[in-house]
């Protein structure tokens, strides 16, 4: 039993964190909202090797797994990274690996090298679909490899301008390349990515609200000195503190093929999204009217948290899984049954 990350994993996290925090400022996110995706930023991520973190070494990647990447996904959340990096490393690459064969051999090196963007779309939706060179699209529980030029994409505006969502229709002749197991695994890895980002987003919102309420004065003192404000922040800290371990455990379970990995992912997604939702609620309150403006940066993070709550299996999907485990499958529970 060793519930902790290695020194190497932490050092990697720290270097990526330093890069993201210096490069992905709120100004840059706002700029990208205006200009649309920017090849310069994606190139920077490629140069750091981040698109190849989970690509096997023989295909030019670093050969790491979900557990190595989960800490990075958390940092992507902290800066509200407006690029599909978490999707690439946690969903697209593992899905290609599972499909294997020529498709994996062709596309994995290109993804690692930053020459191609491969994106997975479930239930008729895909993020950043207009930028991809290959789409892996689900229909009827099966996955199809689709050339984006052969697909019909329709942009749908999200509350989070960084999430460029498309509905997608494609030729019914496209051959299925994988079944429900691969689709389910893709959804679970996407959910893990959303959960990890939600942890980072929640932390960012708390940091912003603590900083703001430390400076903003009313009645002659910082509003952060009032207990009503403190307790709002403490309540977020409590939920966030107890959401982290479930997310890390889910990452470990996916990386190690644990038979209950899917349930662990649902536990993680529910806990992390709940913490982020509470962070958004209490942090906008702590900012007062400023929190309701476009001008103050809080909404960059708040909106991504709201959007991720419904992505990769909404609350109902993940609660249904918990319900099935507890009441239908008669999962052994209680003291000593967790690991």
């Amino acid at each position: 039993m060793h519930f902790d990350f290695t020194e190497d994993q932490r050092l990697f996290r720290d270097s990526v964190r330093n890069f993201l925090r210096s490069e992905i400022t709120s100004e840059r996110v706002r700029g990208l909202w205006e200009s649309g995706p920017d090849t310069a930023l994606w190139s920077q991520l490629v140069e750091l090797g981040l698109t190849g973190v989970t690509v096997p070494e023989e295909h030019g990647g670093l050969g790491m797994d979900e557990l190595d990447f989960v800490l990075l996904a958390e940092q992507c959340g902290y800066v509200a990274l407006p690029e599909p990096l978490v999707h690439t490393a946690l969903v697209a690459v593992p899905t290609l690996k599972e499909i294997g064969g020529g498709l994996a051999a062709t596309w994995l090196p290109r993804v690692a090298a930053g020459d191609a963007l491969v994106l997975v779309g479930l239930a008729g939706w895909v993020e950043d679909g207009d930028r991809a060179q290959l789409l892996l699209l689900e229909r009827g529980g099966e996955l199809h490899a689709v050339d984006p030029d052969a697909a019909e994409l329709r942009a749908n505006a999200s509350v989070d301008p960084s999430r460029r969502l498309f509905t997608v229709r494609f030729n019914s002749a496209a051959e299925a390349i994988a079944g429900t197991a691969v689709v389910g695994a893709a959804r679970d890895r996407g959910a893990l990515g959303a959960a990890a980002q939600s942890l980072g987003l929640a932390q960012r919102m708390v940091d912003m609200a603590v900083a703001y309420t430390g400076e903003r004065k009313q009645f002659g003192k910082p509003v952060g000195s009032f207990q009503a404000v403190k307790h709002h922040m403490a309540n977020v800290a409590v939920r966030l503190e107890y959401a982290r371990a479930p997310v890390y455990r889910a990452a470990w379970s996916l990386a190690n093929g644990h038979p209950r990995a899917a349930l662990h992912v649902s536990q993680a997604k529910l806990a992390a999204c709940e913490a982020a939702a509470l962070a958004a609620k209490n942090c906008i309150q702590a900012h007062g009217a400023m929190g309701y403006t476009w001008e103050v940066d809080l909404h960059i993070y708040m909106k991504k948290a709201w959007a991720l709550a419904g992505a990769w299996g909404d609350t109902g999907f993940h609660k249904q899984r918990v319900s099935d485990a507890l009441f239908e499958d008669k999962l052994p529970i209680g003291a000593g049954a967790t690991f």
Partner: peptide, 28 residues
């Protein structure tokens, strides 16, 4: 009620997972 029962299990598990993580950190 069902939601509360599920949340109870989720939170008890989260408490367990977090405690193991904390214990490992303290042992290190």
């Amino acid at each position: 009620v069902k939601a509360a029962v599920m949340q109870a299990w989720l939170d008890a598990e989260a408490y367990c997972l977090t405690t193991y993580q904390t214990a490992c950190r303290m042992m290190a």
